[in-house]
């Protein structure tokens, strides 16, 4: 191998290694949490002013939590969309009507409940917005199911409402 190419490869590898070392060190806490599928510890503190946005959950994780009855699934979409079809057992909490619906929601759902929020899949940011609002309301365990209703439906998991 020519020395110039060898040196180039060595330098590129070095850059990559240094960036990896810095990145992993800088985010060590978050990465270990994410690796074990846990929420960052900031989200578990009782203080309502959590700065960590809700962590995403994958399809299989959501299915397991729901099967074991350990989590409450929350639908952030509009009532009309909810009526057309939603994940079985989901509570409708449209992002646009949170002001009106939060009192009822907080009265019936304890603050230490595990909440999984979803909307219309990866392109939809409403679930993340609603998740943040729920955190501000004092819910410590809020997750976002980013695959949302489309992924759940296409996986053939239980849905309710609508014609399909």
């Amino acid at each position: 191998m020519k020395p110039a190419i060898y040196r180039l490869l060595r330098d590129c590898t070095l850059i990559l290694l240094i960036a990896s070392a810095l990145g992993v060190t800088w985010n060590w806490r978050l990465l270990t949490d994410a690796f074990y599928g846990k929420a960052p510890s900031a989200a578990q503190e009782p203080a309502p002013s959590t700065s960590t946005p809700p962590l995403p959950l994958g399809l299989m994780q959501v299915k397991e939590f729901l099967d074991r009855g350990e989590a409450i699934i929350v639908d952030a979409r509009s009532p009309e969309t909810f009526a057309k079809g939603h994940i079985m057992g989901a509570r409708s909490l449209p992002l646009g009507e949170t002001e009106r619906l939060f009192p009822e929601f907080t009265r019936t759902v304890p603050k230490d409940a595990m909440l999984i929020v979803y909307c219309n899949g990866f392109g939809c940011h409403d679930s993340m917005e609603l998740g943040k609002k729920l955190q501000q309301e004092g819910y410590g365990q809020v997750f976002v199911y980013e695959g949302g209703y489309p992924e759940w439906r296409d996986a053939g998991y239980p849905i309710a409402g609508g014609e399909r």
Binding site: I18, A19, S20, W26, N27, L31, A34, F35, F122
Partner: peptide, 23 residues
């Protein structure tokens, strides 16, 4: 949102890529 990497991969790339760009 690109629905390409596995769950942990998203976090790993998110941790390293900004440093790579910066360096």
């Amino acid at each position: 949102a690109y629905q390409t990497l596995p769950y942990f991969g998203n976090y790993l790339v998110a941790a390293i890529l900004p440093w790579l760009e910066l360096i």
